[in-house]
């Protein structure tokens, strides 16, 4: 990598000014764990790194009105370890705890996980299922976009981190009867990208699913939402194991995982998704039963 300068802005205006000054040749760096490897192997180019981790206004997370606001500086560890998040958004907490290793989770940020746009990214899969939105700032102004709309192809984010800042991720607070779950399948227990992963967010009442969102990875160029399986969720009784299996089957059918010499053939990965989705629905059923 041929980095000519390393800049540390202290607030977002200064950061935007730096991005503008470098005219697309500067890149934001948060934790840096993905970016450094990409720069090292020539997969990414930049002439200046603009480090956002010292910006007070991008630090921490909080619950505001009806949203959890995870600012860009928040690390996977901070999010996965927060008791309040574990309680209300167990899917997000668990997904964040599955990324990389403890050392990586200590520096890697959720915002970075989203901007890096990998379809297997655990936190991003959870955020999509939870209906999270991203707050993006550029010299043109501030905009809100659903996380699932930020993907522009494999590994391609529609956020241009040489010109824009993802300042926060906003996750709606679950209503009563709403539950969320996350799970993954990987050959070993740690330090491993998933063969498949999935997150679910369900609105339920009286043991019946009113509606639900499912996100799965890595089965597409982005966290994938199986529309038919989501439709099939409506009205399903959480005690009805056969019905849960059927949703899993449909989700598996809708997904189109590639044959991979490392992750397994498509049919097998579809089977894993079928089982994973059903298992997660069972977990969700157990959660609602606990709350009731």
């Amino acid at each position: 990598m041929n980095i000519q300068d390393y800049l540390v802005p202290h607030h977002v205006d200064e950061c935007l000014a730096m991005l503008n000054a470098w005219g697309g040749r500067g890149r934001l760096v948060a934790g840096g764990t993905d970016l450094v490897a990409s720069l090292e192997y020539g997969k990414a180019q930049a002439e200046a790194l603009i480090d956002i981790s010292a910006m007070e206004d991008l630090m921490g997370f909080e619950i505001q009105d009806h949203e959890l606001v995870v600012r860009a500086g928040s690390t996977h560890r901070q999010v996965s370890a927060a008791p309040r998040i574990r309680q209300l958004w167990p899917a997000l907490s668990k997904a964040c705890g599955s990324v990389g290793s403890p050392q990586i989770r200590n520096v890697a940020t959720l915002a970075g996980n989203v901007v890096n746009a990998q379809p297997a990214a655990d936190a991003a899969v959870a955020l999509v299922a939870l209906g999270a939105r991203a707050e993006i700032l550029s010299s043109g102004g501030r905009r809100l976009e659903a996380v699932e709309n930020l993907y522009g192809g494999l590994g391609q984010s529609r956020i241009d981190s040489s010109r824009e800042i993802l300042v926060a991720l906003r996750v709606p607070v679950p209503d009563a009867g709403e539950v969320n779950v996350y799970g993954r399948v990987s050959p070993r227990n740690s330090l491993c990208l998933p063969i498949v992963n999935a997150a679910l967010s369900l609105k339920t009442a009286g043991g019946t699913v009113l509606s639900g969102r499912i996100a799965m990875g890595p089965v597409s160029d982005r966290p994938f939402r199986p529309e038919r399986a989501e439709a099939a969720l409506q009205g399903v009784a959480l005690k009805d194991r056969a019905a849960l299996s059927e949703v899993g089957r449909i989700a598996g059918e809708e997904a189109n995982p590639r044959d991979s010499c490392l992750r397994g053939c498509s049919d097998y990965r579809r089977q894993l998704l079928t089982v994973l989705i059903r298992t997660l629905l069972e977990d969700a059923a157990a959660q609602t039963a606990e709350e009731a």
Binding site: P187, R188, N189, S190, L191, L193, C261, L262
Partner: peptide, 22 residues
């Protein structure tokens, strides 16, 4: 794992050996 004579898992990320949790 090779495809066309080229190694597909040339990293500790995807050449999986056991970790403390396995």
């Amino acid at each position: 794992v090779y495809e066309g004579g080229r190694l597909q898992n040339n990293s500790l990320r995807n050449y999986t050996m056991v970790t403390a949790t396995d």
